[in-house]
């Protein structure tokens, strides 16, 4: 078991040590479904709005969505890097890193300045994320995903591990479901996480209330019936839609393109998924 770094061992840019307050790590797949990305962003925003500091790894996908969500709520967020603190990797997140610093957050690293991205360093970085957090929430992790290393580290370090459930058909939810089966806390919304932090007792009086703060508004594209048959995590093939709706395939294809142009659906593999409105659009394609 690697020795987790103490905060004073870390090289940092930005405000360090961080302001006092509870810290929650939100980690997950670098290529999440639109569902996973939307959950990470909303969860981070809701937690940040209550003053929680969101910790993540500045990777693509769930990590970036978590940082974005925290920033959108005007919160403070910490990015734990697997490179030297003077190197932003991946480059696609350079702008995000700058905004984290501008918002009073920090980039930190246990590696010397100038350390380039190296495969072996990322698991160690995941230990640091766990060490810096009170709770680790895993949002979408395929089997063998790096986010599961963070969860393992959290257990070893006696941190609370929580996970967001997904579709039983989705490979991206396999890791989360394993965690839940093994006793991780269930996260349906920010209140579940706040409860685990032992804070904000007053919000817990109605635990069965629908998780409003995670609810997605009706996607753009109006009341197109096609959308009811599309999932936000699992792709549906045009042929399946044609069969379910009893419509000719050419019509389904043209309606899907219209929805795609309106930003309401995106392509995934051989099918389409529903996109969250106003969400960050990286999940739109691919």
């Amino acid at each position: 078991m690697p020795r987790p770094p103490e905060p004073e061992d870390l090289r940092a840019r930005g405000r360090w040590p961080p302001p006092p307050g509870r810290r929650v790590a939100i980690v997950g797949s670098r290529r999440p479904s639109p569902y996973g990305e939307a959950v990470a962003e909303r969860l981070a925003a809701d937690l940040a709005a209550t003053g929680v500091i969101v910790v993540s790894g500045l990777a693509l996908g769930v990590d970036a969505a978590a940082h974005e969500g925290a920033l959108a709520a005007g919160g403070c967020t910490i990015a734990v890097l697997g490179t030297g603190v003077d190197i932003v990797y991946p480059r696609a997140n350079a702008d995000l890193a700058a905004r984290i610093l501008a918002a009073g957050g920090a980039l930190v690293s246990q590696f010397p300045d100038g350390t380039p991205p190296q495969r072996a360093n990322f698991p160690r970085r995941n230990w640091a994320i766990a060490a810096l957090s009170d709770v680790v929430v895993v949002v979408e992790a395929a089997e063998g995903s790096g986010a599961l290393i963070t969860a393992e580290a959290a257990l070893a370090l006696d941190r609370e591990v929580m996970a967001v459930p997904g579709s039983v058909f989705s490979p991206l939810s396999v890791g989360c479901h394993q965690l839940l089966r093994d006793g991780a806390g269930l996260v349906q919304n920010a209140r579940d996480v706040l409860a685990a932090l032992g804070a904000q007792q007053e919000v817990l009086d109605d635990p069965l209330k629908p998780p409003a703060s995670l609810g997605l508004e009706a996607p753009a594209g109006g009341r197109d019936g096609l959308l009811q048959h599309l999932s936000d995590a699992l792709m549906t093939e045009p042929g399946t839609l044609a069969r379910k709706l009893g419509l000719p395939l050419p019509e389904i294809m043209s309606r899907l393109t219209a929805l795609e142009m309106a930003g309401a659906v995106g392509r995934r593999g051989a099918g389409y998924v529903r996109l969250a409105p106003g969400g960050i659009s990286r999940a739109g394609v691919g």
Binding site: R31, F169, S170, P171, L172, V174, L234, R268, G269, G271
Partner: peptide, 9 residues
């Protein structure tokens, strides 16, 4: 397996 609904890439 990229984009496959069941098997992970």
């Amino acid at each position: 397996w990229e984009g496959d609904p069941v098997k992970a890439c």
